[in-house]
Amino acid sequence: MFKYQIVIPSLILIVWLLLAILGPWLPLNPNYITLVDILKPPSLLEWLGYDDLGRPVLDRLIMGAGTSFFVAFWVISLSLTIGTLIGTISGWAGGYIDLIIVRIMDIFLAFPGILLAIALSGILGPGIENVVFALSIVGWVGFARLTRAQTLSIKNREHVLAAIALGASVPRILYYHILPLLMAPLLIEATFGIAGVVVAEAGLSFLGLGVQPPAASWGNMIKDGTGYMLIAPHLVLFPGLALFLVVLSVNMLGDKLRDRLDVKS
């Protein structure tokens, strides 16, 4: 049977990945202004038309793919590393260390979703590095909470007790005996995390707090397009569609992965 629920989203994500990585080497002119082409609708030759400044939407869309991929990659890598480290230490150490870390996590979880990221990137000023920083500050908590809970349940299993009895060092136990068992839930959390970060990056750029012009993000493309919706709906339609397809694909694969690895959400 053709597993379209896996194949189609995988293809979409591969295209996203390839465009993001190969984008800088493709013959693109994302910032080249052609005044006569301002707001020109899509046609057979110019697939996605031109924006309000006369720049090719397709080229900017590919540049935006690079932005979202860059942010997603760094935010997930940073949050995953920091969160896993803090979470396993918290779960393993217990006692006061655990108590303090849990309280700190509670405080970070008390800020609604993207709000802290909005405040941080608003105060730090726009720019892609600040977006990565702001979203990582928000993102590590999810990983930390997950790994702490898992470590708590794993640390009393026989194989860990055996390792302790054999005199293995704590880093060794955490790395060889606990971390491998965290991989499945972490993989799923990271997958859904990608979807969240891609939307959050575009959201920040939509609010004018993300990457700055002339750099392209799907978020600021949507924002710029909203002023021309009646005469040039393609400006909002295409970046939104790209964003939607990537997020949808990540979510679909995440669902499949969760079923496959049989981890409770």
């Binding site: 959201g203 924002k223 919706m229 909002v236 939607f244 997020v247 679909m252």
Partner: peptide, 22 residues
């Protein structure tokens, strides 16, 4: 449900405006 969680609100909003308002 899958479509709903995947659609960013800053895209859904303008699309709703386009269709139902404009």
């Amino acid at each position: 449900s899958l479509l709903g969680v995947s659609i960013p609100n800053f895209w859904l909003g303008p699309m709703l405006i386009l269709l139902f308002s404009l």
